[in-house]
């Protein structure tokens, strides 16, 4: 099986709210999947289940063939320990809507923190690689700046470098441009475009339909905790079959 991510009938409840009502999805290796949909449709929750920031109540998610968050013992799935979960999360890099850069560390330290503290790599090697990553996102000159001294777009680019420094197999983006001033969206999308060209498997929750049209190999439309339809961008964005997709795209596109 050549899928990077396979989700099978994933359910998630927040109290009485059925946030994910049976989501099944397969993301092939090297694919860029954009998940779109109205707010509250469960797209962020689904993304957060993939690296176990949320724990699904039912169903299973596999990343690179490995079951995430649980160990199968007979007919039951047993929760993994904190340490095992931490190790599994190394497979995927995550980029947050609100950047979540470590406020007490400089841009460079944000990028080297994981490799040095978690992966126990040599400081010099980690620093060299971090500097190369900062250069790749166009921020080599901001290595010693603290997050508060950076613009939103710059912070998000450092956050992408931080995630890449862990050498993940898969990158998850949770509305990476939603908290940005309009004139800063382009620089972040450019970095993501570059990453997609390099063959990285990406799952992007986004409202940027333009980006989806141009970069995505597949667009997934979610509503009310379920996938309504999925397909190539030219099909989903230009000729959606489902009335709810049509309604959403008409409302979002100017």
């Amino acid at each position: 099986m050549d899928a990077m991510v396979t989700a099978v009938d994933v359910h998630k409840y927040f109290g009485a709210l059925h946030a994910l009502a049976g989501v099944s999805l397969e993301v092939p290796r090297g694919d860029v999947s954009c998940i779109i949909g109205p707010s509250g449709s469960g797209k962020s929750t689904f993304l957060r289940c993939i690296n176990q920031l949320e724990r699904p109540d039912k169903g299973a998610i596999f990343v690179d063939g490995a079951l995430i968050g649980y160990r199968r013992v007979g007919d039951a799935l047993h929760e993994l320990s904190d340490r095992e979960l931490a190790r599994q999360r190394l497979a995927s890099g995550m980029v947050f809507q609100r950047f979540n850069l470590f406020q007490h560390l400089t841009a460079l330290q944000n990028v080297t923190e994981g490799p040095i503290t978690v992966q126990k790599r040599q400081r010099r090697e980690a620093t060299d690689e971090a500097l190369a990553l900062l250069a790749r996102v166009g921020l080599a000159d901001k290595r010693d700046a603290y997050p508060i001294e950076l613009s939103g777009g710059q912070q998000q680019r450092v956050a992408i470098a931080r995630a890449l420094a862990m050498r993940p197999k898969l990158m998850l983006f949770d509305e990476p441009t939603s908290a940005l001033d309009p004139e800063l969206v382009g620089e972040v999308l450019e970095v993501m475009r570059d990453l997609a060209r390099s063959g990285m498997t990406m799952i992007v929750v986004t409202h940027e339909l333009g980006f989806a049209r141009e970069v995505a190999s597949r667009v997934v439309f979610m509503d009310r905790g379920a996938i309504v339809e999925e397909g190539p961008p030219q099909e989903i964005l230009a000729r959606p079959h489902h009335p709810r997709t049509r309604e959403f795209i008409a409302a979002v596109l100017p």
């Binding site: 920031l53 994981g114 992966q119 995630a163």
Partner: peptide, 27 residues
């Protein structure tokens, strides 16, 4: 300390104790 800091630490594979020691307590 903002909850997002803990989530970001988790996302780069930190355990709860490492998160407390390296990310949360310093802030």
């Amino acid at each position: 300390v903002d909850l997002g800091q803990t989530e970001a630490a988790k996302a780069i594979g930190m355990t709860r104790l490492t998160t407390l020691r390296r990310i949360v307590l310093p802030q």
